[in-house]
Amino acid sequence: MRKGMDETMPAPPPKRVSPMVAEVRYALHLLTLNKLVLAGIGLAVGLTLLAIIGPFFVPANTPNAINFQLGSQSELGNPNIGWAHPLGVDTYGRDTLSLIILALGLDMGAAGLVVGIGLVVGVLLGVTAGYIGGKIGEAIMRITDIFLALPLFIWALAIAAVLTRSLNSLIIALATVSWPGYTRIIRGQVLVEKGKPYVEGLQAVGVARWRIMLRHVVPNSIFPLLVQATLDIGGVILTLAALTFLGVGLTPLVPELGQMVSNGTTYIQIDPALITIPGLFIVAISLSFNLVGDGLRDVLDPRLRR
C-alpha cells in the first residue's frame, strides 16, 4: 500500500491549550500566508516601536509643544544640513525626524484612545441592547443611529469651539462618533450567540442572565470587533490628520502629522519635503493598519478556515 506505513505512526500527545490560544495560533498561521498582510504587519509593528522607543533618542533640546525655541529659518531649504537633521528642518527650525517620532506617538496614542473609548462604550451599550433587547434595546439602537448620523467635521469643529482647542477635544469628538459602529457590530454578534443552543442550555440549568451575558456571550462575540477596531486605527489617524490640517483643534506648534503638513503648505515651493515627509508617514500608518485589519478579517472568514 503506502510507502512507510508499516509502523504505527504515533500521534503526538494532545496539547492542552485553551481554545483562544489554539485559535490565535491558527490565525497567525493564516496571516503568514498572505505576503501583503505580512508586510503590513511588519510596517505597523515597526512604526509602533518607533513611536514608543524613539522619543528616548530624541535630543534634549528638541522642542515639543510646551517648550520650543524658534530656530533660524535660514536653515530651511538648505540641502547641506547633513546628519544633524537627516530629514530636514521644519518652519520653526525644529528637526523633522524628531518631530516625526514625537508625532507618531501622539497620533497613535490619540487614535488608540479614540478606539479604546469607542470600544468600551460600544461594547457596554451593544451587549445590553443585544442581550436584553426589548424596549431598552430599541432605545439604545435609536440613540446609536442619532450619533451615527453626525457629520464628522462639523461635529469636531463644534466640539473644538465649545471646548478648548486641544488634542483632548479632538479625541472626544472622534470617540463620540466611533462608538456607534462598535455598538452595532457587537449587538449583531450577541444576537447570533444568543441563538446558539449553549445559551439555552445555560438558561435551562439556571445560570443568571448577567452571568451568561458577561462570562459566555461577550467573550465569544468580541473577535470581529477587534478586527474592526484595528482597521479603525488607520482610519482615525487619517481623520485626525485631516482635522488638524484644516486647523481644527490644535495649535501650530504641536508635533502632529497633520499639523506638520499644514505648517508646510506655505513653504511648499522652498522645501516640499515639509509636506511629503509627514504625508508619507500618514500614509504608512493608515496603510499598515488597514492591511493588518484586512488580514484579520480574512482570518475570520469561515470559508478560508481549515
Partner: peptide, 8 residues
Amino acid sequence: PDLIYPPA
C-alpha cells in the same frame, strides 16, 4: 480514527 495518524 484520526486520519492524520491512522492505525497501521
